[in-house]
């Protein structure tokens, strides 16, 4: 791939008997907003830590901006911003002190790169004298993102930035990512929320340490191998149980107020479900199809 800024080739990671990552091959293009989509325990954090030079793989090669994660780790650390899943700022420093600290560590000043964080930091600036440990979840997240950006990294690693965050704040956060992308920063972001996948340029599905698919959200949806139907009844849970017993039904899952159904072979319309209508699969349908 041309313009690949991140590359993983057969990355493996073991913790004792547990194989956390198996032969991960991945390339991310410069300027891309790339999503790593998978549940807790899939191996997302291990991969981030390897790329951020905080963890050694047991095998394979990874490069960031053309630099090797093992040999050139010091140079990589100057070029990447990393926001871990767990809040990792200094709780007993104030908002302002944390930001200044991270700027200083990277030999820069808040003023020099202020334009990059302005939109995000302005929202927490009224609380700049407050200790970071006293902030609410949403404000901690904004401060952590500001600190990860203050040295103007070329690549930003965001490990589950929206887990446990309500839908309104999640939308807001993705709005911020879009703006950062427009400034040319490459972003690798992980999430367990399938609806966020649609907002990425490309995504990788990851489950139990293996990558199941890599593509654009549109291609992933187009690659769904069956016709998918939605049905809505007065008692979806009862209908779900009935459909499961039906030998013609290949899969059936609850999706909000409807059930999503695929059939083996040709669809034989059952009068009870005459309101079946064909629909376009969502990213979540595609992920579930892969882990069935």
């Amino acid at each position: 791939m041309e313009n690949a800024i991140l590359k993983c080739l057969s990355i493996n990671k073991r913790y004792g008997d547990v194989q956390a990552l198996t032969n991960i091959d991945l390339e991310v293009k410069k300027g891309e907003l790339f999503g790593l989509i998978g549940p807790d325990g899939a191996g997302k954090t291990s991969l981030f830590r390897i790329l951020a030079t905080l963890l050694l793989a047991n095998g394979g090669i990874a490069t960031v901006d053309g630099l090797d994660v093992v040999r050139d780790y010091k140079a990589i650390r100057n070029r990447v911003g990393y926001m871990p899943g767990r809040f990792s700022l200094y709780p007993d420093l104030t908002v302002e002190e944390n930001l200044n600290f991270f700027a200083t560590v990277f030999n820069t000043t808040v003023r020099e790169n202020y334009s990059l964080i302005e939109d995000i930091y302005r929202q927490i600036e009224p609380f700049k004298k407050r200790r970071a440990g006293q902030l609410s979840g949403g404000m901690k997240q904004k401060l952590a993102l500001s600190c990860a950006l203050i040295h103007k990294p070329t690549v930003l690693f965001l490990d589950e930035p929206t887990t446990g965050v309500d839908p309104v704040s999640r939308k807001e956060f993705w709005g911020m990512l879009k703006k950062l992308k427009q400034q040319g920063i490459t972003i690798l972001v992980s999430t367990p929320y399938m609806d966020e996948a649609a907002l990425c340029d490309r995504i990788a599905f990851i489950q139990q340490g293996e990558i199941l698919a890599i593509d654009t959200p549109a291609n992933i949806v187009a690659g769904f191998p069956h016709k998918l139907y939605a049905v809505e009844t007065d008692n979806n849970y009862e209908t779900l149980k009935q459909l499961r017993e039906n030998p013609a039904v290949r899969s059936v899952f609850s999706f909000g107020d409807t059930l999503h159904v695929t059939f083996d072979g040709e669809l034989k319309m059952n009068p009870d479900y005459s309101q079946l209508k064909e629909i376009e699969p969502s990213i979540e349908d595609c992920f579930m199809e892969l882990i069935l």
Partner: peptide, 20 residues
């Protein structure tokens, strides 16, 4: 209280069956 946060979509649905 947020029982399914971070859980994969299949397991999330199995969890809801336990609720039902």
């Amino acid at each position: 209280d947020e029982p399914t946060g971070g859980v994969d979509p299949l397991t999330r649905r199995q969890f809801w069956e336990l609720i039902y």
